[in-house]
Computed example of a mutant assay.
Amino acid sequence: MAKEKINNEQEQVEEKEVTETTAQEQNETAEQDAKSEKAEASKKDKKSKKEKPEDKIEALGKELQEIRDKHIRLQAEFDNYRKRTMREKMDLVKTGGETVIVNILPVIDDFERALMAFSEIDDKDPLKEGILLIYSKFQDFLKQNGIAEINALEKDFDTDLHEAVTKIPAPKEELKGKVVDVIQKGYLMNEKVIRFSKVVIGE
């Protein structure tokens, strides 16, 4: 019994020693693994430190290129906007009084009809003189505002300038397809038609 007890104790001691040895070996292995991991991490850090400035330069280069592109686009957009607004402003200046002028044109027509009615009256007649004076002032006003009469009589019919009211047989062969009579005068304002000439075409 005593021998068995001793043997058991001896076995327990041996097992304990084996366990301690195994634990120690495991600790040593763990320490070695930790050291190797630290070494690898430090290598990676060194590599990343070496690579970082290059990456930063590349990223900054890309960012600078994007900013340049944005700047060029914005500059082009602003330039187009400036040109467009200038053009619109010029058009407004040119055609700003178009509505007023168009409304005055019927008054000019009435003056011309009155002058036709006074054609048989002596030029020294005070009434005729007064109408001629007012008519000439209207004509000056139209010229100052860039208004020009469309010369249509005996001209080729042009749909960009004339509006055909009717067709009649041409009094002469050479007047076929041309304007033989003007019912209402047309006008241009700075080369833009503000009223088409109402005409009669010869056929």
Rank of each mutant, 00 (worst) to 15 (best):
V200A: 10
E88I: 06
D158I: 15
F118T: 01
D91A: 12
F138M: 14
A23W: 01
G186M: 00
K38W: 00
D45L: 09
S36C: 07
E203S: 09
A41K: 11
D160T: 14
E31L: 15
E63L: 04
E9M: 13
D156L: 06
E173C: 06
A2D: 13
F111K: 00
L175W: 06
G177N: 04
E149T: 15
E154Y: 12
A39Q: 10
L60D: 10
Q139A: 05
N27E: 10
K89L: 12
A164D: 06
F78T: 14
K185H: 08
H162E: 03
Y81S: 13
A170R: 02
H162L: 01
A114R: 01
I183H: 09
E112V: 05
Q12V: 09
K137R: 14
L127P: 03
L133G: 01
E112R: 02
I134E: 05
D45A: 15
V193K: 00
Q75M: 10
I201E: 04
E9N: 10
M90I: 13
K16H: 11
I104E: 02
E129M: 08
E40G: 07
K35W: 03
T159H: 10
G97V: 07
A76C: 00
K46R: 09
E11V: 06
V100G: 06
Q10C: 09
T166N: 04
K3W: 11
V180E: 05
K70I: 08
L60A: 10
I201D: 01
D33F: 02
N145C: 04
R84T: 06
S48T: 11
L60G: 02
K172V: 03
F157A: 09
A114K: 02
V107K: 04
M116N: 05
L127A: 15
D140V: 04
K62Y: 02
E149G: 07
E154C: 03
L175G: 00
D79W: 04
I168W: 03
I67E: 06
I121R: 11
E88Y: 11
T29P: 03
K43S: 15
R84W: 08
A59P: 05
V93S: 06
N145W: 11
M90Y: 08
V13D: 04
L92H: 08
V102P: 01
I6E: 08
K35L: 09
A34P: 03
I67C: 05
G96Q: 00
N27Y: 14
F157L: 06
R68V: 05
E28M: 07
S42I: 06
R195E: 00
K128N: 03
V199E: 03
D123N: 12
E120V: 02
E163I: 05
R73G: 07
F138D: 02
H162R: 05
Y187H: 12
G177T: 07
M86N: 13
K43D: 01
K155I: 07
A117N: 07
K44W: 10
I104M: 09
T159P: 14
I201F: 03
L105G: 03
I101H: 11
E163C: 08
D160A: 13
V179M: 02
V13C: 00
A114S: 10
T22N: 13
T159V: 08
L132V: 02
T85E: 11
T166S: 12
T21Q: 15
K185G: 05
